[in-house]
């Protein structure tokens, strides 16, 4: 009903632009951000389609031949296909290994990002809406945690927890939730004092509904920006931990594990085993970061022309 009234009021000659269309137009104004978005989309597609577009499954032992080990880029594998990026110490085709590694790296990054987002969001909203002692305690914990570098927090946790996908995700979540909590609380505090919240309260809506139905949607913009940047950070942090040998085990070879495996060969000049997974990691992290930068510019009302 509301839709039709708005449309009848708008003159026919004016093109009606939905907020999403405006957002999209503004986002793609920047050439760099467009490139980054395209690159990230390609990376995600490659990761999803990995089993169908790679010549071998690098973790199916029947398909890997040790005789193919440490071949330089462009060599021909025993099975007949060309290894454009060379092979690693165990004879795995690096191109295949990288795409399978991307799957693990990206899923760990996104999983930890999303879980941290939900925890941080809930805690931050709670702090802002309830206030008082609860808020003071929550924010003390957040401040305390943010006084340690995230890398160190994650490292401490894996030192305590040990290796494994679930443990890494837990470590990344604990290392990152505080950033979300701080962001949400800061935004929610501003929103809480606005009139629409007062109006909702006067209507007798439940607390849950005011917080999640009215305040939360207005806090989403900064949350999305922090979420993108933190996801990039999570991918990079997981790679760092795995590289140090305290992250994912050899059975879950993310990009960090691949780079670590290649490290021992690097000093003898076999650069490709570390370098190519490294470039894949770099493109992933940098493209997410650049998309995040552009989101920040587009979603920040203070920078609106």
């Amino acid at each position: 009903m509301t839709d039709s009234t708005i449309q009848s009021v708008a003159p026919a000659s004016v093109k009606v632009e939905t907020p999403f269309q405006r957002f999209r137009a503004e986002f793609f104004e920047s050439r760099i951000a467009t490139c980054a978005f395209v690159i990230f989309t390609i990376i995600v597609l490659l990761a999803i389609l990995a089993p169908w577009i790679t010549p071998q499954n690098p973790y199916d032992l029947a398909q890997v031949d040790v005789l193919d080990g440490r071949l330089p880029p462009g060599s021909e594998a025993f099975a007949g296909y060309t290894m454009w990026l060379g092979s690693d110490g165990a004879g795995r085709d690096l191109y295949s290994a990288i795409l399978y590694g991307l799957r693990i790296s990206i899923s760990v990054g996104i999983a930890s990002g999303v879980i941290a987002l939900f925890i941080g969001m809930t805690v931050g909203l709670l702090a802002a809406y309830v206030g008082g002692r609860t808020e003071a305690i929550i924010m003390r914990v957040v401040d305390l945690q943010l006084s340690f570098p995230a890398t160190l927090v994650a490292l401490m946790l894996v030192a305590v927890l040990g290796k494994g996908v679930d443990k890494i995700i837990l470590a990344l979540v604990v290392a990152q939730w505080a950033y979300y909590a701080r962001t949400v609380r800061a935004t929610a505090l501003v929103e809480r004092s606005k009139e629409y919240v007062e109006a909702a309260q006067c209507l007798g809506l439940s607390r849950m509904r005011v917080v999640f139905g009215h305040i939360l949607p207005n806090c989403l913009a900064p949350l999305i920006v922090v979420g993108t940047v933190q996801t990039a950070h999570a991918v990079s942090l997981e790679a760092t931990l795995s590289f140090l040998g305290v992250g994912l085990p050899q059975t879950e070879p993310s990009l960090g594990v691949l780079i670590a495996n290649g490290f021992e060969y690097m000093l003898s000049g076999r650069y490709w085993i570390s370098v190519f997974p490294g470039i894949a990691l770099l493109l992933t992290v940098a493209s997410i970061n650049l998309v995040g930068d552009q989101l920040r510019d587009v979603l920040n009302p203070r920078l609106k022309k």
Binding site: S236, A239, T240, I259, G278, L282, A286, N289
Partner: peptide
């Protein structure tokens, strides 16, 4: 910007590759 987004360990590897190897 690169300095912020490149993972430290990867830059270290590249430094070794370039200057040492």
């Amino acid at each position: 910007i690169l300095g912020f987004s490149l993972p430290t360990f990867w830059v270290g590897l590249m430094l070794i590759l370039l200057f040492a190897v």
